[in-house]
Each structure stands twice: as structure tokens, then as C-alpha cells.
Amino acid sequence: MPRLEEVTTLDGHIDPVWCVSWSPSGSLLATCSGDKTIRIWGKEGEKWICKTVLTDGHTRTVRYVTWSPCGRYLASASFDATVVIWSRKEGEFESIATLEGHENEVKAVTWASSGSLIATCSRDKSVWIWEVTEDEEFECASVMSSHSQDVKHVIWHPNKEILASCSYDDTIKLYKEDNDDWTCFQTLASHDSTVWKICFDQSGSRLASCSDDKTVKIWQEYLPGNEEGVVTHGTNSVWKCVCTLSGYHERAVYDINWNHVTGHLVTACGDDSIRVFGEDAESNKNEPKFSLMTVINHAHSQDVNSVSWNPKIPNLLASCSDDNQVKLWRYVE
């Protein structure tokens, strides 16, 4: 039976930990917390230690942290309405820019695969796109107010300039650039409550979402002229919900992460547990079947807020919780 083995617990944060994020090389883990700090963790010998604490970037909770595709920059989103861009040089982190403009709490920040675009989302219901100029300036390229409520998360497609966001309005929206500005080209409605997180699979043709309605949904992309005969409009592809995982989670599902090597999905749940799902061998893309591979009940003593697979060590997993702790896990087949 597959199982999750605890590797280590990383103590340091003194308030709930909101997000765990691996660097592209997999060697560093960034975490952020209600204690207004960002911690960078790395391995020294066989031991995981806290390498740096970034304390002076934000005046309120740091809700989200993420690395640029090149690994040289870190972006942090905070309830203080700002995003801070940090530059990493010889192990030292220096704040090089503050992105201001959101009206209130910024919930997430994400880098496009090209590294030249950043997207942010906020409780002010808007999604912003920022362009990185040659001299490390960040200019607002678009402000999209498609959602009717708090936007919880925003994420770029792994290889196309397509952006996805999800919200307290229970929907997921997809955006692309069209005639001088960015516009929403599809709204995915199927969840019955807040959609907390979304993530793409390795190919970018599937999207997974998790919600306050205790379910996980898988969405499949259908390109124009697809052989299944799904109707599309113009050059836009259409995304359809092809699978709903219900009955597994006892509370809201706060985070979901797709392993780009093994294809496994991991979820973080308000019932303090971590679950890993795998796709069945006979599954097909139009009606995929996922099974629960393993569950760790009481992985943390409170809500699990975030989970993330290491991009280079496919069976290494990080999680964090309202219990102020960060944990590393090994997935054993």
C-alpha cells in the first residue's frame, strides 16, 4: 500500500503558515506566515534547516510566496495590499520592487513561464497582469474585474500565455490577450462554493480545482476541431469538467498540487489531513478515473493550508498548517 512517511518538521514560524513553495531546482523551500515573515529552508548535509528569514517586506500576513521560473526571484503577496519582488544573489535576498495598486489583501502572485509577466489577485475582486521591463521595473499591463467576489488564486498555464483564476464567487475564469488588452474567454462554473485553488497538469491540457464544497474537479481542454466534437468558438479552446472527486474530504479543500512527474494529485484539507490521488490505468481523458492512494489523518494538528510536490524529487512533499508548522513527507509506493 502506498503511504506518506514524515521526513521532518520545520519549526520557526510563530503564526499559521499559509503557503509552501519549492524553488525550480527543488533545493530551496519558501514558506510564509501570519507572522509577516518569509522563511527559506534548505538542506545542510542530511538536515533541513532555515537558511534565511525575510522580515521587513510586509506589514501584515504574507499569504502567498512563489519563485520565478529562473529561480533568481521570489514574489510574496500580502494582506498589506502589496506584492514584493525579492532578488536572490549569492544566497542573500534583497527586495527590489513593491507592486502597489491592489485596493486590499493580495491573495496570490504567479510568474508566467516566460518570466516576463506576473499575475496577482486580491480581495478587491480584480486580477492584475504586470509586465517585467528590461530594467527590472514592473508595469501594470491589465486590470481585469471579471469576478464578482474575492479572487482566491491565480495561476499561469505551464507553456501558453493563458491565465486562470478562481474565486469566492464559486467560478474559475480563463484569460488571454486579445486586441491590445487581456480578456476573460471562459468561465468554468460547477463548484457549489468558494474555489480555493487551481493547478495545471504537466501538459497544460488539464486543470484541477479544489473547493469549499469539499470536492476536487478535473477540467479537460478541448481545442478547436477536437475529435470528440466539443463545440468551440473561434481560436479559443473550451474547458469542460470531466471528473468530480467527492466523498473523500470532510471539510473544505484548501490546496491542490499536481505532480508533473508522477501525475499524482495531493490535497490540503480543513480536516487536518493530506490525501494523494492517482489516475487509474484504464482512465481516459474524457472520463478520467482517480483513486485515493493514501491519506494521512491528522497530518497536522489544525487545518492544512498548502501542499506542494518537489519538482526534482518527485516523491518529496511539503505541507504547512494553522498549527504554525511546516512538514516534509516522503511518498512511498
Binding site: E103, N104, R123, D124, K125, S126, V143, S145, Q149, D150, Y168
Partner: peptide, 13 residues
Amino acid sequence: SGALQLTDLDDYI
């Protein structure tokens, strides 16, 4: 206009 819409502060009520 878009500028005015963004200043709508609360989202739950």
C-alpha cells in the same frame, strides 16, 4: 467606469 468599480470594498455582503 472601471476606476470606480474597483473601489467597492466589501465582498461578502
